[in-house]
Amino acid sequence: MLWSDSTHLASFGNAALWPIYMFFGNLSKYTRGKPTLFSAHHLAYIPKLSDAFQDFYRRTFKKVATAAVLTHCKRELMQAIWLLLLDPEFMEVLS
């Protein structure tokens, strides 16, 4: 089972990460819920779009990126991360 959610890094500011964790699905929810049992395996972090992306978009397309465009780009970024993680070598191990 794969899981991801935003994690805030500090009590102040807006620094956050999106870690991807893997759990084995056949473990009891009581086992998965105990951090001391280390049942979660950290796979990667999903980076967020850089603040410079809006400047790049404006220079390239001569207009500001809309909320829909930013959402699309965030989805594409997430899919690109999955393509890196699920490379052919990894998929061969799974089969």
Rank of each mutant, 00 (worst) to 15 (best):
M1L: 02
M1V: 04
M1D: 00
W3K: 04
D5R: 11
D5I: 04
D5V: 04
T7Q: 11
H8N: 07
H8M: 12
A10G: 04
S11C: 05
S11I: 03
N14A: 04
A15P: 07
A15G: 01
A16C: 01
A16G: 03
A16V: 01
W18P: 01
P19A: 06
P19Q: 00
M22Y: 05
M22F: 08
F23I: 09
F24M: 12
N26S: 13
L27A: 13
S28C: 10
K29Y: 14
Y30N: 15
T31P: 07
G33T: 11
G33M: 15
P35Q: 14
P35K: 15
T36H: 14
T36E: 14
L37P: 04
F38D: 08
S39E: 08
H41T: 05
H42V: 04
L43E: 02
Y45K: 01
Y45N: 10
L49Q: 03
D51H: 07
D51I: 10
A52P: 02
A52W: 08
Q54F: 06
D55L: 02
D55Y: 07
D55E: 12
D55R: 12
F56K: 05
Y57P: 02
Y57M: 07
K62Q: 05
K63V: 06
V64W: 08
A65L: 05
A65R: 10
T66M: 03
A67D: 15
A68E: 08
A68H: 06
A68W: 03
V69A: 03
L70I: 09
L70H: 00
T71E: 03
T71C: 00
T71R: 11
R75H: 08
E76R: 15
Q79A: 13
A80K: 03
I81N: 11
W82C: 11
L84Y: 06
L84F: 04
L85R: 07
L85T: 02
L86A: 05
L86N: 03
D87A: 00
E89C: 02
E89M: 09
E92R: 13
V93M: 14
S95D: 14
S95I: 13
S95F: 12
